[in-house]
């Protein structure tokens, strides 16, 4: 094999280097070990764990999930084992290998974010944190942290003081201007931003007149949200200087390339992993093929390479 036969997929997001741009999205890859029997974790550049809170969370009442084909509506409610058990029992197993372990953190108040990160600082090998400030399925905290840019900035700044590790914030599309949240994250000291989280959605049974989720509304994900996600990434690309991780409906290598063209430096694969936990390996192979065929020397040259005649048409805050 010559060097050109195996193109280098590596990307750099500030202080975080990934051997490829493919990350598993939070909530879609468990704590990191669940798919070990059937999928090689190292096919991923990294993975974001299920969101970890200070105390264990039980999640929402069932039913929590319904397919709205080809999308998925969920109201899991961040069910998780809590930071203590995660740090002691799970984290040591996921920091091995070349796939970077990034821990998602979701809490009800700012102090808890600081406390969870402080506790995780003792676990060697964690590559960074994704602050989940955009979950639509919890009553306290969640999306509320993202809807107010002042709170976003303060939260990031407070966590920034607790760690030298890489930090990204996960942003919601359920606000007028996602770039406000991105700018606030940047101002607070985030190394990157991740977007988008799920869109608020709803499904109803016409016959029984009942909602299909116990929480009535939930978060919509999967292939149908890709156009929304691309638009949000493009908006944020025109607003901030820190790297962007694109998320939303990715199912193949072309989706990855498109996200990078509109401004992403890396991507997260989410809902599609449920159908095929080996998808990242396939996409990585397809991306190498694409780079060979198109003469792309480095994936980073794609980032923000969208060709437009009229420039950004989206509202970018001055």
């Amino acid at each position: 094999m010559t060097a050109t036969a195996s193109p280098d997929l590596s990307v750099i997001l500030g202080s975080l280097s990934l051997h490829n741009p493919l990350l598993a999205a939070s909530g879609c890859f468990g704590y990191g070990t669940e798919y070990d029997d059937v999928a090689d974790r190292d096919n991923l550049g990294g993975f974001i764990t299920k969101s970890i809170s200070l105390a264990p969370w039980k999640g929402n009442d069932p039913p929590r999930l319904t397919e709205v084909s080809p999308g998925l509506l969920n109201s899991i409610g961040l069910a998780n084992m809590g930071v203590e058990k995660f740090a002691n029992e799970v984290a040591p197993q996921i920091v091995t290998g070349k796939s970077k372990a990034i821990v998602s953190v979701a809490c009800k108040v700012m102090e808890e974010y600081e406390e969870v990160v402080a506790l995780l600082e003792d676990v060697e090998g964690i590559a960074g944190y994704e602050l989940n400030i955009s979950c639509p399925n919890v009553k306290e905290g969640g999306m509320a942290f993202c809807l107010n840019p002042n709170i976003t900035e303060e939260l990031v700044a407070r966590v920034r003081k607790r760690t030298n590790r890489w930090i990204t914030t996960k942003l919601t599309p359920n606000m007028t201007s996602v770039s406000q949240g991105a700018l606030a994250s940047e101002a607070g000291g985030a190394d990157a931003v991740s977007l988008i989280n799920t869109l608020v959605g709803m499904a109803v049974d016409w016959k029984s007149r009942r909602p299909k989720l116990a929480t009535i509304t939930g978060g919509y994900s999967g292939p149908p949200i890709k156009p929304v996600a691309l638009a949000k990434v493009w908006e944020v690309w025109n607003a901030v200087k820190i790297p962007i991780i694109g998320i939303g409906g990715i199912t193949n290598w072309k989706d990855v390339v498109e996200f990078m063209i509109v401004g992403a430096s890396a991507v997260q694969i989410g809902t599609a992993l449920y159908a095929d936990p080996n998808l990242p390996g396939q996409i990585a192979a397809d991306l190498r093929e694409y780079m060979r065929n198109e003469g792309v020397g480095s994936l980073s040259e794609l980032t923000g390479s969208l060709k437009t005649d009229r420039g950004a048409m989206v509202g970018v805050p001055a």
Binding site: G30, K58, P62, A79, Y274
Partner: peptide, 22 residues
Amino acid sequence: QQMGCGVGVCQGCAVIVEGGDT
């Protein structure tokens, strides 16, 4: 129950069962 992942990742197929941690 309706399922997403089938392996405990998505936590979508929860049911109410007595005697567990939650």
